[in-house]
Write a protein that binds this DNA or RNA. Structure first.
Lengths: 326, 326
DNA sequence: CTGTTAGCGCATTCAA
DNA sequence: TTGAATGCGCTAACAG
């Protein structure tokens, strides 16, 4: 490995000068600079980021804790965040994160990251406290079940978005609308269920308790399993909204297998607009979650917090994409 | 931030002892150990990974260079690799990687990673040389266009896999089979085109040059755009295989819009088996790429290389999933 | 069994 | 405009 010392020797200067040249942190005579640059070139020298991180107390690395990378929505979000992080020269770690791992988290991230993104996670108070003490900002993309002051959130106004979707369905004559939620009370998708309830109220529709389905997890299969039995009942909801698109796709699949016609017998809608949603049969009506924008804002907020600038929660606007499933 | 020094002071020992306790690297009297552990607990001390990395010349961080995170196949692969990396206490960076960034790569990764995974990339010789000098092993999941000795590859025997798929199609009466490839000659999917050519030969079928379509990139839309015009021609191939599933989905979408019946008028098959492929109309026949296994093996090979154990290229077996599109 | 000490590669203060 | 020297937090060789 080439070190600054070797570069300095070859250029006939001290290591400090090499540092000055590299970081533009001090005036260096043009000729000296040239010599140093040349030595760097010849030796193929590159700064050792570990050493720099130790000295600077800054790693330029960020962590993304992700719930379920199998979900293209979250994968897409991750991708967008990375895109913007890269622009600011931050490297991104990602970790699929289960609660069991939380205790190890502090050890794993200590001295490794300058900030943490949460993609569908909530952390426990003592974990939060630890990162607060270390001055590691936390930005959450999704509203966690329990809010904490140091976690800044980027999310949609789900009540507003669902209300708009409900109006669309109402306009087509639907009165009894079901919702596909998720069982785990800690799961961040719970927030969307709450929002849906409020939206139904706003739109003066009754959300009956047995019109809320609780899948075991957010995947396609779990929604398929949960919805399929209910599809044979004669008296039922005429539309269903799903807390995420993967589960909505599961509903579409169940309808196909039960020969329930979409949208004539049942209208289906999703909440994220992943690519798959445009390819199901029929293509799905969805709330288009602005992943691109959210990624950008998330990084923006993260930068602000790292620089100790104030950073408030951000609510973004989605759009409604009407396709054949409604 | 709590340091080892503070822990040592509180426990009334030297920092070395704290190190010994933490790393189990030296015998410590039970009572002393207890005191140290308690001090650590009380202070909420965690090891600073940056300092450790500097000292040990080992970061326990790995990079994944990924071509197109928008592709669920690659996202899935990333997920699997992360899963296995985590088991061995490695953190994973990922970077969506474009050629323009290659020059910056060395600077970005220097001192940050112990190894690099390539997901559909080829690096230039001087980049490879740099990492070779630093003893940073490189493992590629996909066969790059130009092979290099220090890059170990994990891939399928695509010729074998495509031959099996071709036999399936042949058994259903197909003789003229087209292929959806990708234009960029540097793109790793070129390898699959070459394999398909050989497989056709093996199966004694003629692959006509204008039955090979070259999409501009590997996405759904690009395949859709490329295939759509050709669907109206009366005399044409009766089956098409796509180098990846996203493009196969694009073909299915084009057939839908052109009212070409699948599989009666055209059989379609993909090469990876992403979730979406089971939800298109009709669901697609695909080669099931064993992402789980590949992730495991990739990490295994990486560990071997990091420990300077010999590590040969690995060829894994896929399975054929027959669905309604063929 | 425990303490002292010498770096790892870098940024930076202080002198020159 | 440049150099010498210090220390970031950690590991491990060596001495006791």
């Amino acid at each position: 490995m080439t070190t600054r010392k070797e570069v300095a020797d070859r250029a006939g200067v001290s290591i400090a000068v090499v540092s000055y040249v590299l970081n533009d942190s001090n005036y260096v005579k043009e000729e000296t600079r040239r010599k140093v640059l040349q030595a760097i070139e010849e030796l193929g020298y590159e700064t050792n980021m570990a050493a720099r991180a130790l000295k600077m107390r800054k790693t330029e690395q960020l962590a993304v804790l992700i719930n379920h990378m199998g979900n293209p929505h979250e994968a897409g979000l991750l991708l967008r965040i990375e895109e913007h992080a890269a622009k600011h020269n931050y490297m991104l770690f990602f970790q699929t994160f289960q609660k069991e791992k939380e205790s190890k988290l502090k050890a794993l991230l200590n001295g490794r990251v300058d900030g943490i993104f949460l993609l569908g996670q909530s952390l426990q108070e003592d974990t939060l406290h630890h990162f607060r003490k270390q001055n590691i900002p936390i930005v959450s993309v999704t509203t966690p079940v329990t809010r904490t002051e140091d976690v800044t959130c980027i999310d949609l106004d789900w009540t507003f978005e669902y209300a708009r979707l409900i109006r669309l369905l109402k306009a087509k004559g639907h009165k009894r609308i079901a919702f596909m939620a998720i069982r785990d009370p800690e799961h961040p998708l719970q927030h969307r269920l709450g929002a849906f309830r409020r939206a139904m109220e706003t739109e003066r529709l009754q959300l009956e308790e047995n019109d809320v389905f609780y899948a075991d997890e957010g995947g396609l299969q779990s929604a398929y399993d949960k919805i399929k039995p209910s599809l044979s009942s004669p008296d039922r909801y005429t539309a269903i909204v799903s807390a995420n698109d993967l589960m909505a796709a599961g509903i579409v699949a169940a309808c196909r297998d039960r020969a329930v016609h979409i949208p004539n017998e049942l209208a289906v809608a999703g909440s994220e607009d992943i690519l798959m949603s445009s390819q199901t049969a029929p293509p799905m009506t969805v709330i288009h979650y602005p992943r691109e924008k959210v990624g950008e804002i998330a990084m923006e907020v993260m930068l602000a917090k790292m620089q100790k600038r104030p950073a408030a929660d951000r609510i973004l606007q989605a759009t409604l994409v009407e396709r054949k499933s409604s």
